[in-house]
Simulated scan of single mutants.
Amino acid sequence: MDWDDLRIFLAVARADSLSGAGRRLGIDASTVGRRIARLEAGLGAKLFVKTPQGYALAPEGERLLPHAETAEQALSVAAEALSGPGDLSGQLRIGAPDGCANYLLPQVCARLCEAHPGLELQIVALPRMFSLSRREADMAIAVSQPQAGRLVVQRLTDYRLHLAGHDDYLAAHPPIRDRSDLRAHRMIGYIPDMIFDRELDYMTETGVDFAQLTSNSVSVQMQAIRAGAGLGIVHDFAIPFHPGVRRLLTDQVSLTRSFWLVRYADDRRSQRMNRLADALGQGIRAEVARLETQLATLEASAERRT
């Protein structure tokens, strides 16, 4: 058994298909299939079971998986030992909910790329949980702390959310003095059955039963608010990107949530991954603080003008 066979085995196990593994590896699906068949013949064991959904691990494959992952990690650590500390380099895929991916990670990653020219960063913005065991991402940012799996979880920072609306909408609709007034307004929020984390269930904070305009994307919700479609709960750090959007009822509707950095447990042995995690965490903390401070400055300036 050689490492190249194990590399292909891991790709199929993570992609659940020959074609998906081939795309990750840069080879065609038929080659992947032949290599898996050769590995199974050499081991005298069936590693995968073909299902309507793709390729699932057979019991023998389940037993092989942790050993293959250990070999992968050992090779990575060995490569780091030979290359030395130096600048951070190579590819890193970061999974994040789209609010973080749209409003924080572009600036954070830009600074990381500037500091480390050999670094290739990929931002995967998806409104759902990421599977690190399947290597959908090397690290993931979550809005709640995972409770299961072989993971390392680090709390990054708190962030704040408030009710907000655009000046054009507010000028054309009844005034908002307290939460009871919200029932006369159109609300924007998440599609209820697509809320993938309980920490994203904001609507109860408003006292309104439901939202008339909904999306599973934070960015779509914010664009709807900016277009004057209604009111919604938004991240404070997103507001500076949208002139005309302002916070409302800040003393009555105020939420605090946290970002968590989630990593695969075995990556703790990698100094490169540890350094990347530290740099990413510091960058996100600094960017949340910068944008929330900018929002406070903008609001103070607007207050002085009125």
Rank of each mutant, 00 (worst) to 15 (best):
A110N: 01
R111Q: 15
L112M: 15
C113P: 00
L119K: 12
P127C: 04
L132Q: 08
R134K: 14
R134L: 11
D138M: 06
A140Y: 04
A142N: 13
A142S: 15
V143T: 13
S144F: 05
Q145W: 10
Q145K: 15
G149S: 07
L151R: 13
V152H: 02
Q154L: 08
R155M: 03
T157A: 05
H162F: 15
L163H: 01
L163P: 01
G165D: 07
D167C: 05
A172H: 09
H173V: 13
P174M: 03
R177G: 10
S180G: 02
S180I: 05
I188L: 04
Y190N: 07
Y190C: 06
Y190L: 07
P192D: 12
P192G: 08
M194R: 15
F196H: 11
D197C: 09
L200D: 04
Y202G: 06
M203Q: 12
T204L: 08
T204M: 04
V208I: 07
Q212Y: 08
N216L: 10
S217H: 11
Q221F: 05
M222Y: 01
I225F: 03
A227L: 00
G228K: 10
L231M: 03
L231K: 01
G232Y: 09
G232N: 10
I233W: 01
V234H: 06
V234P: 03
V234T: 14
F237I: 11
P240T: 11
F241H: 15
H242P: 06
R246I: 07
R246G: 09
L248I: 13
T250Q: 05
V253S: 00
